[in-house]
Simulated scan of single mutants.
Amino acid sequence: MTLHLTQVSLTHANGVRALHNVDLHIGAGEQVAIIGPSGAGKSSLLNLLATALRPGSGAVEVLGEHAWQLSARQRQRLRARIGLVHQAPPLPPRQRVITAVLAGKLGQWGFAKSLLNLVHPLDVPGARAALARLDLGDKLFAQCQQLSGGQLQRVGIARVLYQAPEVLLADEPVSAMDPVLAGHTLSTLCRHAKEHRVTLVASLHAVDLALSHFSRIIGLRDGQVFFDLPASDVDHNLLDGLYANEQLQSPPVPVAPLSVQIPRC
């Protein structure tokens, strides 16, 4: 089992309970979408899986390791095997795109090599190839401040693709993109996961994208798993319950396109 959470709870420093008694089991090579209303705990769950947050109780097992029973150095090595795509990638405005992408390997390179890379990019072809998969090959030497929000999100994804992790976690990775580009980007992530047998877990606000691209859907509500089902079993009633009491109407179950059916992960 690649990702294994047992009775995990998490309360943030401000007293807000993010997760409560979560059990979650995701096998190697699975592709899973997490959906749910704002504040449901989706980002907290992904950060727990990335070992960026420590649970208040329960056990977190990632890639066969009990993350919080490891030493700090061992946990750092584990993190190098995990890729996390942020909704708003932490990219310095004046940093060049190529440097941002190559930073995906910093957890695997030594200090001297990482420092040299800041002065002289060490793998131009590798960075260009990762960006080209997301239609950003022409932005290789641009500064991050010259890019749109959607382009910055794709740079963040390219960095994780270049990292080549065994577990790829994505927190609202396409929220700044138009629907067509979002669909294309998720297809790229899913294809990469299949080709390299990477375990992919993505939180998504757009339910239609989750159901179109992922075969397993986890609904999270009030910090607990509301349902964990194949996408084909997620219907209007489940979505109404998941998004109950939201000010906006719950997202509809999408109708398959008339001409093209997007393959699921």
Rank of each mutant, 00 (worst) to 15 (best):
V234A: 02
T99F: 06
A129Q: 14
Y243C: 01
L118E: 11
P55S: 07
H86E: 00
Q163S: 08
G150Y: 04
N237A: 14
H196W: 10
V8G: 02
E195T: 13
L189K: 04
S43A: 11
R216G: 05
H213N: 09
F226G: 05
G58W: 05
V60F: 11
V32Y: 00
A80H: 01
R128E: 12
A130V: 10
P173M: 10
A80R: 06
T11H: 00
L209Y: 07
R94L: 14
V119A: 11
Q76M: 11
A182I: 06
L24K: 02
P252G: 01
G15F: 00
Q249N: 11
R75M: 08
K113Y: 07
L49N: 02
L134N: 09
S148F: 08
T11Y: 04
A13R: 10
R197V: 12
A164D: 12
G15S: 06
A88E: 15
L115Q: 15
S203N: 10
H205N: 03
S38N: 10
K42A: 04
L248T: 04
I26M: 10
G27L: 15
P257I: 10
L239R: 07
Q108W: 14
R73Q: 11
L140D: 07
C190H: 02
L204A: 11
L48M: 03
V124N: 11
L49A: 04
N237T: 15
V16I: 04
H196C: 10
E65W: 09
A202V: 15
I26C: 05
V255L: 15
I98E: 08
P254V: 05
G58Q: 00
S43E: 09
L116V: 06
P165A: 15
V22H: 08
I218G: 01
A129I: 09
N237D: 10
L147N: 12
F226H: 15
A18W: 06
S44M: 05
V234W: 08
A176R: 02
S187C: 08
F111D: 12
E166M: 15
G36C: 06
F226L: 08
A132L: 11
G41D: 00
C265P: 03
V119P: 03
R77L: 14
Q224Y: 09
A210P: 00
R191I: 02
R197E: 14
P121D: 06
Q95Y: 13
S44P: 00
L186T: 08
V201S: 03
E65T: 02
L19D: 00
G241I: 05
Q143D: 12
K139Y: 12
H25T: 13
G64A: 03
A40W: 08
A193Y: 02
L91Y: 11
Q146K: 01
I34E: 06
A80F: 04
V260G: 07
L19I: 13
Q76D: 15
V253E: 07
